[in-house]
């Protein structure tokens, strides 16, 4: 169960404000651009609220120039809320990968979705778990790169917690593959 990624790999991370989706997007882009030596562009959209409301980060990764900065045909969509699922599940390209939160999202309409209890696994580090799942399932960046990027961005004192969350995500991805 792996997605075939396009040379211009497009990833959409969506959920509620406060789940860390935008930070997860930044970390993923840094893993690609700083630690894997590729090009990456990260964009975002969010409502005026600091918590709650819809929040979405997009990351485009390529080895060459990236012109249009936003997702056009998503290789991967991660949806951690019902609203995000409703809005973005259909933006996955055929053969792409849809990852949903098992508890927060009713994905009966999308039998191909991979269900992982991301928010239940770690409340404070939801975004980091999601990154572990995403990278574990796609290999869009190297494990080493995502680990370095998480270390660089984790607030001081939370490095260990974030690495545990990342590992938990990789483990969940491993199980989902089987």
């Amino acid at each position: 169960m792996t997605a075939k990624l396009s040379p211009r790999t497009e990833i959409r991370l969506a959920g509620e404000g406060g789940q860390g989706m935008i930070l997860a997007g930044i970390i993923l882009a840094e893993a690609a651009a700083i630690y894997d030596g590729k090009n990456a562009v990260q964009t975002q959209s969010y409502g005026p609220e600091a918590r709650g409301g819809a929040s979405k980060a997009e990351v485009v990764i390529a080895s060459g120039e990236i012109d249009h900065p936003e997702v056009l045909n998503a290789d991967v969509v991660v949806a951690l809320s019902q609203e995000a699922f409703k809005k973005f599940a259909s933006s996955v390209k055929p053969g792409g990968l849809l990852i949903v939160d098992e508890e927060k999202v009713d994905s009966t309409s999308a039998p191909q979705a991979i269900r992982i209890p991301v928010t239940k696994m770690a409340f404070e580090t939801t975004g980091t778990v999601a990154l572990g799942v995403l990278v574990g399932l796609t290999g869009v960046v190297s494990r080493e790169a995502i680990e370095k990027a998480v270390t660089a961005r984790a607030p001081r004192g939370t490095e260990e917690m974030n690495h545990k969350a990342l590992d938990a995500g990789f483990t969940a991805a491993e199980k989902a593959r089987k």
């Binding site: 930044i26 882009a29 651009a33 700083i34 090009n39 990456a40 562009v41 990260q42 964009t43 975002q44 990236i66 900065p69 936003e70």
Partner: peptide, 9 residues
């Protein structure tokens, strides 16, 4: 807003 908020290396 796109160029202002966009992140690139």
């Amino acid at each position: 807003e796109i160029i202002g908020h966009m992140r690139e290396p």
